[in-house]
Each structure stands twice: as C-alpha cells, then as structure tokens.
C-alpha cells in the first residue's frame, strides 16, 4: 500500500538530482571569498587572532575572509577537512601548533606533515608553569630543584594527555630528572580553577588564565616552555636561562593550505599575511596573550613543523603514549 504520493515524490527527487554541477574557472586570485577553517571553538585564542587578521586583510586582499569554526578531535577534524579540499586557495586552515605537531602522537589521524602545505607561521607564545605564592621556590632553578628533591610528591595540571603542554613539561622534567604527577584537565581554564583552589600544586598551560592572579600576588610563575623570556611575566625564566634552549616548545599559529597550491596563490597569501601580522591591532591581540609577533615564511615554517613534531614525538614515546 505504497501511496501514490510517495512514488511521485521519489520520481521528482531523482529528476532534480539529474542536474549537473557547475565548474568555475578562475585566474585572478582571490576572486571570491576565502574560507578559513579554525579547528577550534569561537572565542578561543586561535579564533581571536585570525578574526583580527581577517579584519585587516580583507581590504588588502579585496575579498571576504569567511571564518569557519570546526572544533573537535584536538583540531584534527578541521585539518582533515582541509587535506580533502581542492588546492585552489579558497579553503585554508588557521591552526595552533597542537593540531599540526602534537595530536599525531596520541591520536590516529588521517593526515601527516606531508598532507598539507605550510603557508605562513604567525605569532609565538609559550606555556607557563605556576605555583601558589607560598611554594618553597621562587626562581626556575629553585623550582626544578624542589621538584627533583621530592619525586612524585607534586601534581601538575595540563591541558590533557598528549597535549602540547603535557609533552613540553615531560620533556623538561626528563632532562632535569624530575618525577611529577600529571593531572590532565579539559583545558587551561579548568586547570587554572583547580590550581587556584589548591587541588593541584602546579599550573601548566597558557598564560591568559593566570596573568591576573600573578598581578594580584596570589600566584608566582617560575618557568616558561619557550627559550626566550616573556615581557608579560618578567619573573619567569625561559629555557635559555636554564641552558636548555633546545627543549623549547611554544604555542604558535600558522596558515596551511591543501597540498599543491599554485605559486601565485602562495605568493599573494604570504605577502598579505606578513603585512597583516605587522598591523597594530594584530600585534596587540598577540601581545595580550603573551605571544611575540614573529612571522616565518613557508620554508622556515615547514622546518619548524618537522622539528617540533619530531621532538614531541620522542617525548610522547618516552612517557609511553601509544597511538590509539
């Protein structure tokens, strides 16, 4: 008793689908809006930076930059979508380094460093480790000594198992022969809450959640995971001060595209983004989250990805993290 209406509807559907799709040909780039995928939620650090960039870039590029949030899988979902996109320069990803150099060590993902084309790297921040103001150490050296003298006694929060922050910390701890208990949280905000409440001893994560508390004197931050010091938290030492700049792991961002982008597209994007990153509003945005306004072109960017991925891979192996 299949109703006649159903038959008619099905026939109409098949008919509609018969229409072919149109193919557009273009030579001048960009000639239509560019989609930029952010592999994270709206309002996050990465999202904020690209929105500032988009605002200054739209006049230069003469087209709209459409920011598309594709959160999930630690950023892997957004990057995966990109690797399947056509390399015409109209689908790009602006990502933090986590989805590019970290996630592959703990999660089975369908892409590698060679599945996409690095375009430009922008901004360089760092992760930070903080303790309560009554912690028996003030400098980075005292802090590490204290941790070493009491193996397994202290707990440190991080952004999650196999996160960039977690691996960066483990790398440093291994070098200094330290055993501390990692306690993974869902993100820097949750870590900060548990740290401020005294449920864990050491905060590990990005700068923004703790900056205000450093100012109020409730918290002190001895150690950064970058090589250089940071003007936002002058009392914290970078790894250069400790003589181990090679262990540096940063928090940075970059633009990538599908493999095989035409040269003119690459050139346009590199020029435009380099200019954009130098604009005051973008520098301010980076400044506020404690990131330096560094810019690296495609070649240095590619080398940077390879280097960080390799060293974090080793750190992951050392703590017995297996890909699942």
């Amino acid at each position: 008793m299949v109703p006649m209406r159903l038959v008619i509807a099905c026939a109409a559907l098949v008919g509609t689908l018969g229409f072919g799709s149109t193919v557009q040909a273009q030579d001048k780039y960009p000639s239509r809006p560019i989609n930029i995928i952010v592999p994270g939620p709206p309002g996050g650090g990465t999202d904020t930076i690209i929105r500032h960039l988009a605002e200054v870039l739209e006049p230069t590029l003469g087209t709209k930059l459409v920011i598309e949030n594709k959160p999930g899988g630690g950023g892997a979902i957004g990057v995966t979508i990109l690797t399947q996109a056509r390399p015409d320069g109209y689908t790009l990803v602006f990502s933090h380094n986590g989805a590019l150099t970290t996630i592959q060590h703990s999660l089975q993902i369908p892409y590698t460093l060679d599945s996409y084309q690095p375009i430009i790297q922008i901004g360089y921040g760092s992760y930070i480790m903080c303790v309560a103001s009554d912690f028996p150490a003030n400098t980075a050296k005292e802090f590490l000594d204290e941790l070493r003298s009491k193996p397994g006694r202290y707990t440190y929060g991080n952004d999650g198992v196999g996160s960039t922050m977690h691996l960066a910390a483990e790398q440093i701890f291994k070098k200094f022969d330290i055993k501390a208990k990692p306690v993974p949280f869902g993100g820097a905000g949750e870590t900060a809450r548990n740290f401020l409440g005294g449920h864990i001893d050491i905060y590990g994560g990005s700068l923004p959640p703790v900056i205000a508390h450093v100012k109020s004197g409730k918290v002190k931050c001895p150690l950064l995971t970058s090589a250089a010091n940071n003007p936002v938290v002058p009392e914290a030492s970078g790894l250069k001060d400790l003589g181990v700049p090679e262990l540096e792991v940063g928090l940075w961002w970059g633009l990538i595209g599908p493999k095989g982008l035409p040269d003119n597209v690459m050139k346009t994007l590199v020029t435009a983004f380099t200019e954009g990153a130098a604009k005051p509003s973008v520098r301010e945005a980076l400044d506020r989250i404690g990131a330096a306004p560094t810019v690296n072109g495609p070649d240095e960017y590619k080398a940077m990805l390879a280097r960080e991925s390799a060293s974090l891979g080793e750190a992951a192996k050392a703590i017995g993290l297996v890909k699942k």
Partner: peptide, 9 residues
C-alpha cells in the same frame, strides 16, 4: 580581552 580589559581580581 579584545578591549584590553582583564577580568579577574
């Protein structure tokens, strides 16, 4: 943060 206002204590 965009407006340079840091919420907190």
């Amino acid at each position: 943060l965009i407006h340079g206002v840091q919420p907190g204590p």
